Measured scan of single mutants.
Amino acid sequence: MATDAALRRLLRLHRTEIAVAVDSAFPLLHALADHDVVPEDKFQETLHLKEKEGCPQAFHALLSWLLTQDSTAILDFWRVLFKDYNLERYGRLQPILDSFPKDVDLSQPRKGRKPPAVPKALVPPPRLPTKRKASEEARAAAPAALTPRGTASPGSQLKAKPPKKPESSAEQQRLPLGNGIQTMSASVQRAVAMSSGDVPGARGAVEGILIQQVFESGGSKKCIQVGGEFYTPSKFEDSGSGKNKARSSSGPKPLVRAKGAQGAAPGGGEARLGQQGSVPAPLALPSDPQLHQKNEDECAVCRDGGELICCDGCPRAFHLACLSPPLREIPSGTWRCSSCLQATVQEVQPRAEEPRPQEPPVETPLPPGLRSAGEEVRGPPGEPLAGMDTTLVYKHLPAPPSAAPLPGLDSSALHPLLCVGPEGQQNLAPGARCGVCGDGTDVLRCTHCAAAFHWRCHFPAGTSRPGTGLRCRSCSGDVTPAPVEGVLAPSPARLAPGPAKDDTASHEPALH
């Protein structure tokens, strides 16, 4: 009773807030009518008042009428009001819900409408889902798969039609296919003929059939049928067999079959498995989609049935006599038709004709302190090069084509190399640097090759510096006499390219 009084008091307290929050009759008014909170006449009256005075006034009048009803109607109103779709449509209802007392429970059932309790003993237990329907569909599909699609060729003596089998029958139906081979029951999904010589313990000319048996419980189990008994694959494991010639990621696949039913060829011909030897223990289905393919039931050349050999690369099948050149017997292992072999060759040939990528240039590290003349020119003028003790990398590039010797140069053309002071002394051009340390401070000019250098860098042994005729380390061993002091540049003949010694390969005349 306390809860009923509290709900009535809360409705009177929030009546105006609810009326202002509800700006549309749908969905709240319609939901109240659906849950029998508002009768039909009051529903029509509220809609009429909404058209006349507006939605807030109409709902305020409806809530005032609701306060005169019993506690069950008020409880049902609060339940409908706080439904998710009403809270989404009328956003101003959320503060009312947040301020609702926590001790007021809106989930209690309506009085007088409590459903009768059902004894637990009368409640049926839930049924577990079964796979009976899938099993029945598999039974119905198996006879259809064994139905012949056409008439065999005159040369083929193997013609068999499976008798119709009602689904209610649980007995196995067997077809006489000759040579002791028996087909599987209607619940078998796949059958492959297997030679009895590969099964340990088999006697006589009995041949087993590799099947997948579907049981009534819905589970499946792969086994071997020899005669009327089934054997699990673990009985046929043979770890010492060295003649297993397995197909790549293979499961067994029928390579020879008669049109209309699988079996042995007439005249004692023995149908073979995809792999010879003992049956392997793992009978998992292969991951290669080509091995799941269903080959055609007629020859791809003459479009006739009979004894066919199936290609492992495509769905086509052929007569042995229709092949070019014809085959006398079934080859062992994987067999592919000429079209598949030709496609494989065409895929391999473009790969062989692809040009080989060019090898990157060989990189040879230079000892610290040495650099090529090109690196000396590329440096920024007026700045010493940083990191001189790091190992430089010199790339061996292809030799350029031989060019004509340089033409003779006048001494005026070499004027930018040297600057003559007032006393006739050779001065260095701006930006000249030593080729060893890279520093341009207090550098000297070689009178023979006009290269800038430090005496301490080229002659670290402490050799005394002569007063005139300074030469760098590369030119100090040259027998050519030094030019007379005061000459602007060496003779043009000295600039012609010539053979250089091994220790002077990195010091070429550089223009500054």
Rank of each mutant, 00 (worst) to 15 (best):
A6T: 06
L11V: 03
R12W: 01
R12T: 00
A19Y: 00
V22M: 00
D23E: 10
S24Y: 04
S24V: 05
F26Y: 00
P27A: 05
L28C: 01
A31I: 03
L32H: 00
D34C: 00
H35D: 00
H35C: 01
D36W: 06
D36R: 05
V37C: 00
H48Q: 15
P56K: 15
Q57V: 06
H60G: 02
A61G: 03
S64H: 05
Q69M: 00
T72V: 13
A73Y: 05
A73W: 00
L81E: 03
F82W: 00
K83N: 02
E88M: 02
Y90K: 00
Y90A: 03
R92F: 03
L97A: 00
L97D: 07
P101H: 12
L106Y: 13
S107G: 06
S107R: 13
P109W: 02
R110E: 11
K111G: 08
K114D: 02
K114W: 14
V118F: 10
P119H: 12
P119C: 10
K120R: 13
A121F: 13
R127T: 03
K131W: 01
S135W: 15
A140E: 14
A142E: 12
A145I: 07
A145H: 14
T147V: 09
G150V: 07
T151A: 14
T151F: 15
T151V: 15
G155K: 06
G155R: 10
S156T: 15
S156V: 12
S156N: 14
K161R: 15
K161F: 15
P162H: 15
K164Q: 08
K164T: 07
K165L: 03
K165E: 10
P166T: 14
P166K: 01
S169K: 15
Q172L: 15
Q173Y: 15
L175E: 01
L175A: 05
G178L: 15
G178R: 15
N179V: 15
G180P: 00
T183L: 06
T183M: 06
T183D: 04
M184Y: 04
S187K: 08
R190P: 09
A191L: 02
A191W: 02
G197L: 11
D198M: 10
A202Q: 04
A202C: 14
I209L: 07
Q212P: 03
Q213G: 09
Q213I: 00
Q213N: 07
V214Y: 13
G218F: 03
G219I: 14
K221L: 03
C223W: 01
Y231C: 05
Y231M: 05
K235T: 10
K235C: 15
E237W: 08
G240W: 11
S241E: 13
A246F: 14
S250G: 08
L255P: 10
L255Y: 09
A261R: 06
A261H: 05
G263W: 13
P266G: 08
G267L: 09
G268D: 08
G269Y: 06
G269D: 06
A271H: 15
